[in-house]
Each structure stands twice: as C-alpha cells, then as structure tokens.
Design a protein around this nucleic acid. Structure first.
Lengths: 196, 196
DNA sequence: GCAATTACCTAAAGCCTTTAGGCAACCAGG
DNA sequence: CCTGGTTGCCTAAAGGCTTTAGGTAATTGC
C-alpha cells in the first residue's frame, strides 16, 4: 500500500483549504484524514492533537497575511501605506474566511512570540512613521488600527453590515480616510473627569 | 423522582454562567445536563439542538448588553455618552467573557432582526446625535464605532495587548478621546485616486 | 380521582478524539 | 541483492458529545 506522504507542512496547507471551504470550526482531524484518504490515527503521528492542527493553520495564515502585508507596504508611505495594509486584511478575510478565522486563534504566549504576529505589529508601526506620533501615542495608535482592522473585517465577514446602504466598500474607504485624518490630528490627552 | 424544572429561560441563564466559567466553545448540551443533574436527552425537549442552545445564550447576552447600554446612555450626550457606551462593552466583556463570546455568534438573519442587536445599532446612532454628522457619514461612523468597540475588546480579551506598556486602560481612554475628536472633525470624502 | 399532558428517563446509533500496538514500506550498509 | 532499522500508516478500542425513538412517572385540569 502506497504511502500518502503526510507532513506537518502539507497538513497545515490542506487544513487551511478545508477551513476556507467548510469554516475553521469544522476543521477536524477526521475530516482532514478523509481528505488525504487515510485513517484518522495516521495524522496523530504528525500532529499532537486537534488543537495542534489548528495552531498549525493559524501560523500559516499569519505568515501569509504578513507576507501580503509586506508586499503591499513596499514603496508606500503615509495614507497610501495605511490604505494598502487595511486592504490586505480585508481582502484576505474575504478570499480566505477560514484562514482568517484561524488567524484569530488565541496562541499561547511562546507560540505567539515565535509567530508572524510580531511582523504584523511591526508593519502597523511602520505605517505610523508617516505620521507625527511619539510614544506612548504611537502604541495607542497601533492598538487602534489593529482594533479597527480586526473589528471591521470580522463584523463584515459575520454579516453585521449586510443588506443595508451604503455599501461596505464605501464605508471601508471612508473609514480609511477617517483614520488618516485622525492620525494626522491626534488629540492630546484630556482631563480625567467627566468631559461635560 | 423529582423534576428539575427546566425551561428555555433557565437553560439560557445556566448556559451563560457555564460559558463564563469554561468558555463559550466548551458549552455543550452534555455539560449543561450535568449541571442540572439530569440526563442529556432531557434537554432536547427544551432545546432543538446544540446550536439552538448557543443561540439562546447569544440572545440573552445581547439583551443584557443592550440593557446595560441603555442604562449607561440615560442622561448622557456627546463624549460622555460615547465613553459610557464604550465602557459598557469593555466591562461586560471583562466580567462575562463567555457571554461576550456568545454575543458574537452569527445569527441567521431573521433571528438577528428579532434580537436585541437592533437596539445596539440604535444606541450607537443615538450617540451620534451629539455630533454633527449627516447620512451617509452617520452610517459610516456607526460602523466605525462598532468596529473599534468590537475589535478592541476582542483583541484585549484574546491577550493581544498583554504584557506590554502602556497599560490597556490608558489606551482605551485615549482611543475614546481620539474617536471623540474624529467625530467632531469628520473628514470630507477624498478623491478616489492614490492620495500621494 | 381520573385522564391527558408534560417532564424526564433508558437505549442506541453515529461521529470525533486520542492512545496502544502491529505490519509493511523505505533506506542504509554490507 | 538483502537485511536490519526506522518510519508511516494501519487496526483496535475506549471515551465523550449529539441526536432520535420510545417508555414511565409526575403534574395538571376536569
């Protein structure tokens, strides 16, 4: 009987495809075994457990996203760069919803530190070089951008904005406009008390 | 043998507690049956299936969140209202992570329309009455606020900002400041082409 | 106090996860 | 070649969750 030639690499790749087709939550060791026409137990030589498989897919997605981000940022600065990175996230999520969901998997701290996640933070920070922000405002801004990108994309993907005017593409463009304006005009801290 | 007195209502409430304790993904018909000291099949008289149970918990969480939001908004306007609603989401997520995760469940359109989800959109829109925005910018702003609230809260909950200075409370305050400034200074649309 | 309804039960089938142990395929070195 | 070691995939099995079918006991209403 011929061998299937399984590797962690191939499992991650096939798992990512499976996630895009049926949803990340439905990715299962059994389903992946079926896809390779192999018995379930065979996968356990390559993968510690179900969670390990999902982690593999998560890491793959983070890498792919970071690669796309780096490519998009090359040669751009300021609002151009901001819009480019924003679109990378949105487009990736729309093209690969399962992979995008995988990228949201909560990694344990060591895995997270070794992942491409750090490249994402670096890219966002790189964009801010085009704006006039110093620490700690820069970190606040990094977190804001991360929140907007992630929040918008996951709401849109989840259908939160569906069936209502104006269309989501317009909103997306206008949000990028707004973020650009905000970064160019970042407000100073206000007093702590009630602002009224 | 005494009856346990199960109702959809009580199942939703107990399911929500369970979600906060073990995580929404671990909420299972079996686990809930154990909690009521009842056989698994018994729950299926009250709940169509596992997904139905999760939907119940989701609806409960949306209600609770909307109630808190309404209470927080009463008597406030402008930035005060903005900060109040923002804190409702963040505090709820920190107090009840499982319920908050439940609230993100993707509902089918009819269920969504009948849920407290619509109250959430109304509350965000109410806040914008304190700012000078007209359609379609108001809708763009509603979506931006939703994205930031959801994105920030879920990233913070997922540990995305952990172990790094500055602390997340400061960032949260500064983000609310920034959103307030942005809403008071909402930019006009820019030309479509590259902005450089 | 009896009938109808309701609430919870037993039983069973199906799928997923995970571990233990076996045989066959591949890859060295002789 | 061909022989042994390693590796890759297998069978087998136990345990958990989901869901359905059909039974019995508690409750409700007349």
């Amino acid at each position: 009987m011929a061998r299937a030639g399984l590797t962690r690499e191939r499992l991650a790749r096939a798992g990512a495809e499976l996630a895009d087709e049926v949803g990340f939550d439905e990715v299962t060791v059994s389903a992946l075994a079926r896809r390779f026409d192999v018995k379930v137990a065979s996968l356990y030589s390559h993968v510690r457990n179900s969670h390990d498989l999902k982690t593999l897919i998560c890491l793959l997605a983070l890498e792919e996203l970071a690669d796309r981000g780096a490519a998009a940022l090359a040669g751009r600065a300021g609002k151009d760069a901001l819009a480019a990175l924003a679109n990378v996230y949105r487009d990736y999520a729309r093209e690969h919803p399962g992979r995008y969901a995988a990228a949201q998997l909560r990694l344990d701290p060591e895995a997270a530190a070794a992942s491409a996640g750090v490249r994402h933070a670096q890219m966002t920070r790189a964009i801010l070089r085009g704006y006039d922000l110093t620490e700690p405002d820069q970190t606040h801004a990094v977190r804001l951008l991360g929140s907007v990108f992630h929040g918008y994309v996951s709401l849109e993907l989840g259908g939160g904005f569906s069936h209502s005017a104006p269309d989501t593409q317009t909103t997306w463009t206008r949000i990028v406009d707004a973020l650009d304006a905000l970064l160019r005009n970042w407000p100073a801290p206000t007093a702590q008390g009630p602002a009224h």
